[in-house]
Computed example of a mutant assay.
Amino acid sequence: MPKVLRLHKTGSNVEGWAKTSQITSTEIKDITDGAYGRALKINASIPTPFARMHLFETAFDFVKRGVAGNSTNTIYHKFVTHFWDLWELLYNQESYAQAGNKVIIRRWNKQQQLGAMQSNPNTNLLGRTLELFMNDRRFQGWRISSCSSMSQPIAVATDTCS
């Protein structure tokens, strides 16, 4: 009996390699984490800020749905904690500045930065990849800012222009 390899519960059975239909959000929600959030590192196939945003989005959803059962020490909980840590840092940035730890927030100029990346042979591919993501309808109107303290990057944040 052949084994059907799939991460979700629905779908048609096919013999060998054959084209199947695209999975929907229903099937995606059915995908379980076999490690139950115990992974020590997050693997992302697309190393961009956009992939990272989706990881945070997924982490919030998994924590909300209780994917890891009763455990609160999962990688998803760590992502949610990092999110709230950043919000706390931004909310209290004046207090940090008074203590000598200035938080710098810089708006990312999309056209200028992408142009610079694409004109450099070492970063051309990354610039083109970022442009693909930034031109996706889901990210239209987004502004990107970076946060740093003492010349060390902390986070990349987004907001909408509307």
Results as ranks from 00 to 15, higher is better:
Gly100Arg: 03
Leu90Arg: 14
Asn92Met: 10
Asn124Met: 12
Ala68Asp: 06
Gly127Lys: 00
Thr74Phe: 06
Ala97Tyr: 07
Ala68Pro: 03
Asp136Ile: 03
Glu131Val: 00
Arg65Ala: 15
Asn70Tyr: 13
Thr129Ser: 02
Met134Pro: 01
Glu94Ile: 11
Trp142Pro: 00
Asn135Asp: 15
Gly69Ala: 06
Phe79Gly: 06
Arg106Gly: 10
Arg107Tyr: 07
Phe139Lys: 01
Ser145Arg: 15
Ser149Gln: 14
Ala97Gly: 07
Trp84Arg: 08
Leu89Thr: 07
Gly69Tyr: 13
Met117Pro: 05
Asp85Val: 04
Arg128Asn: 07
Leu90Ala: 03
Leu89Gln: 07
Asn122Cys: 06
Asp85Gly: 05
Ala99Ile: 07
Val103Ser: 04
Ser119Ile: 03
Thr129Ile: 01
Gln140Lys: 15
Gly66Lys: 08
Arg106Trp: 08
Asp85Tyr: 05
Asn70Ser: 09
Trp87Arg: 09
Thr81Ile: 08
Gln118Arg: 09
Gly115Arg: 04
Tyr76Ile: 10
Met117Thr: 03
Ser145Gln: 09
Ser95Pro: 00
Met134Arg: 09
Val67Glu: 11
Arg143Asp: 15
Lys110Val: 04
Lys110Gly: 01
Phe133Gln: 02
Phe133Lys: 00
Leu86Ser: 03
Gln93Gly: 03
Thr72Pro: 05
Gln118Ile: 09
Leu86Val: 08
Ser71Val: 10
Leu125Trp: 04
Leu132Ala: 04
Asn120Lys: 05
Thr129Gln: 01
Val67Arg: 07
Thr72Leu: 11
Gly141Arg: 02
Thr72Gly: 12
Gly127Pro: 00
Trp108Phe: 10
Arg138Phe: 08
Tyr96Gln: 01
Leu126Cys: 05
Arg65Trp: 11
Gln118Ser: 01
Asn101Ser: 11
Asn70Cys: 10
Ser95Leu: 14
Gln112Val: 12
Phe79Asp: 06
Arg128Cys: 01
Val80Gln: 04
Gly66Ala: 10
Glu94Ser: 15
Leu89Gly: 05
Met117Gly: 04
Asn101Ala: 15
Tyr91Leu: 14
Ala116Pro: 03
Asp136Gly: 12
Pro121Phe: 02
Ser145Pro: 06
Thr123Arg: 00
Ser149Met: 12
Asp136Lys: 05
Leu130Tyr: 05
Leu132Phe: 00
Ile75Met: 13
Ser149Val: 11
Thr81Cys: 06
Asn120Val: 07
Ile75Leu: 02
Leu126Trp: 00
Gln111Ala: 14
Ser146His: 07
Gly141Asn: 09
Met117Ile: 08
Phe79Gln: 07
Glu88Thr: 15
Arg143Thr: 14
Leu114Gln: 02
Phe133His: 06
Leu126Tyr: 08
Gly100Ser: 10
Ser145His: 14
Glu88Gln: 13
Thr74Pro: 05
Ala68Leu: 09
Trp84Ala: 04
Asp85Ile: 04
Ser146Thr: 11
Leu132Pro: 01
Gln140Ile: 13
His77Asp: 12
Tyr96Leu: 10
Val80Phe: 13
Ile104Ala: 03
Ile104Lys: 09
Asn135Ala: 08
Leu90Gln: 04
Lys102Pro: 02
Asn70Ile: 13
Gly127Ile: 02
Ala68Thr: 09
Ser149Tyr: 06
Val103His: 00
Asn70Phe: 15
Glu131Gly: 00
Ser71Cys: 11
Asn124Pro: 00
Trp84Met: 05
Tyr76Lys: 11
Val80Asn: 12
Gly100His: 02
Arg128Gly: 01
Met134Ala: 14
Met117Glu: 13
His82Tyr: 12
Leu89Asn: 06
Met134Glu: 09
Gln113Ile: 12
Gln140Trp: 14
Arg143Gly: 10
